[in-house]
Design a protein around this nucleic acid. Sequence first.
DNA 1: AGTGCGTTTGTAGAATTACACAAACGCACT
DNA 2: AGTGCGTTTGTGTAATTCTACAAACGCACT
Lengths: 412, 412
Amino acid sequence: MNHYPLNKDPFKETFGSLENLVDKISDVLQCPVTIEDANHRLLAYSSHEGQSDKARVDTIIARRVPEKVINSLWRAGIIPKLNQSNDPVRISEINDIGLGDRVATAIVSKNGILGYIWVLEIDKRLSEEQFSLLKQAAQTAKNQLLQVQVRKKKKQEGHQELFWQILTGHLKSHEEIKEKIEQFGLPPSLPASVIIFQFKDEITPKIESHISYMVTTTQQLRITFFVISRHELILLGSPLQGSEDKSATVNFIEDFISQMGKRFKVNNIQGACGSSYDTYEKVEKSYHEAITVLNIKNQFPQEVGDTYSYQQLGIYRYLEVLLKKKQEDGYENATLKKLGEYDGINKTQLLETLEIYLNNDSNVNDAAKELHIHTNTLIYRLKRIVEIADIDLKNPNQKMTLYLDIKLNKLI
Amino acid sequence: MNHYPLNKDPFKETFGSLENLVDKISDVLQCPVTIEDANHRLLAYSSHEGQSDKARVDTIIARRVPEKVINSLWRAGIIPKLNQSNDPVRISEINDIGLGDRVATAIVSKNGILGYIWVLEIDKRLSEEQFSLLKQAAQTAKNQLLQVQVRKKKKQEGHQELFWQILTGHLKSHEEIKEKIEQFGLPPSLPASVIIFQFKDEITPKIESHISYMVTTTQQLRITFFVISRHELILLGSPLQGSEDKSATVNFIEDFISQMGKRFKVNNIQGACGSSYDTYEKVEKSYHEAITVLNIKNQFPQEVGDTYSYQQLGIYRYLEVLLKKKQEDGYENATLKKLGEYDGINKTQLLETLEIYLNNDSNVNDAAKELHIHTNTLIYRLKRIVEIADIDLKNPNQKMTLYLDIKLNKLI
DNA sequence: AGTGCGTTTGTAGAATTACACAAACGCACT
DNA sequence: AGTGCGTTTGTGTAATTCTACAAACGCACT
């Protein structure tokens, strides 16, 4: 086993590539070593002949750390610990994801995390000295990564401009867009849908880096593009071929929102997506659909708060059209008008009662609970409503009309 | 008591007016006498000082026979009997409408009924001779009425042309239309709505006379205009001030259809009406609404078969707009598609099951009955549907979306 | 304070609906 | 003919909803 003196830095020489560096580290520490970027994408791995654990193999195969592993590392508090610590951190094995004992360190520049170095402890634990060596290795890796960073940033700016052109319909034809995307060396990924996240507060550079992390680490969707404007994050995402589950996009949205909260304490994010289309020219449409979803979610937080996709909106997709038609017709629901008048005179809440009853799929128990009243009170009120408004609550057409008209009235 | 010899016709002289004639008849028969036209509108009544029954008084006050009385006479089979008989007919009292014993005869020309003469039998019954005299009186009345008929016909043709102009939007401004209507001496009657009846078979002159009868005898609505084209009868009707009930128009439609069937054996009539508006310029709109109702009723006979007004259409009013939006969006309900495919492969009827379940307001019993299956079968199918289509049948938004999309699919 | 009206809550039995399970059926496939 | 799958029907029980009725409350009006 080689021994390097502490006072001499074995990583002082220049390494042509990260591969050389990782081999050197592996050589010095006598362990399998992996370097990944800030988003857990594999940058280099040592060709050490010894054993590897499952997590490492999977990472190398996929050229990125599996999302399951990332999630697990977050849950165990390891990633935050790495990000905050200046020194290497020892991580005990996590069996269910095939992660053996290891030591890791973040590669940090003054602008934040650039990546991580992972060292597997197959047969023996690293010594204090070796911890120190690893820290020096991270210093050297930093310089290499900074160069990559700049190149990537420039590239991304080009992507963003292209994405805006697609979103705004500046580029119309599918062929044209496809060509441009290929020019950028981006993988073709269709069908695709546009996803928008709306942040309550302005997106700071810090949040931006969190977003970038989330977007690149997710493996639920392939994110071809993403751009950030003041309060919004807009993505173009495609479901992976593996998951034929159509709800991949919706799952991604839910996870993104929940993890931004849990991991980075960034809350109050609204998410929405348009439909999935198989040609690029329809991306613009998907974008507008996503905007519609956001608008409707803002207008009807209770009704469609847990809904993210344009498809899921159901009847709410039609509200705008219906409102327009209603105004053209000069239509007013006589029933609701009567109830409203009655409410005004008698200080009752028949309208609200009816709405919540309908919201709850005509279930008296659920509706009564939501209204905080006795079931019989609700039944009594419903009888009153039927009398006053002269309606039939067993007639689906009437019920739907009432439901829609109630919601439409809220729009004005 | 005067006695006129049988062989001498006391009505041979010329009478300047119907009033003179009616007084003469009353004088000859020594009874109160009333003459009305074919539509039971009062033409003349004797000023005989004696008693009268309630029906006669009401008729004179309203200048027409009350609808209740007409209905009662039809129910008792008296009107048809009068229309078919060449001789006067004796009618026994009908207490609940205040109709005392009387004798009546139709006034008939070769083109049909022109009117009726009613003779009250207050103290004594008419003799055979007097029957004969009454028959002669009817002959004389006929000539007078024929002249009136011609004048009325001409007037009506003028009305019809005006009505068409209003319906087709040829006359746009309210003021202009109002003026024209006043020129015709027609009563101003607003709010008004357009009513259309669609006849399965072509409207023959005979049916036309029945229509005319129905339209002029009804007292549920004031019918300002009516025109007849090949298969259609179009009316402009206003609710009477007395009945503030908004469903007067709908009631009229229902009664019209049922009575055309019962009284004249004219069946297969579809009826519909537009909304009520208070300016004449909106009559055109009401007309188009009525047409829409008819179209939708033809497309959804089951769903809105018992619905007549544009308002009652509820959600079906929106179908056209929704279809348009749907086509613009290129939207297809994935759920329904899946179910349809499943039905195709497994020869099941999940789609139909779902539709009828939703039609029946999610009531398993009613739906099972309509489907002629066991309740548990329905429950089983619903579970399948939920599985296959991945939907939540407790979510009103989803349910409404499914309902609407099912109906929309039927439109194509 | 009393009266009347509309409203709310409670109780209890009847009617419906939900759920689990077993049996049998039809049909395609071998 | 047997097997498996999806479907249909029947049974029994638990849960829920409907219904009617009684009691009490809040509030305006007198």
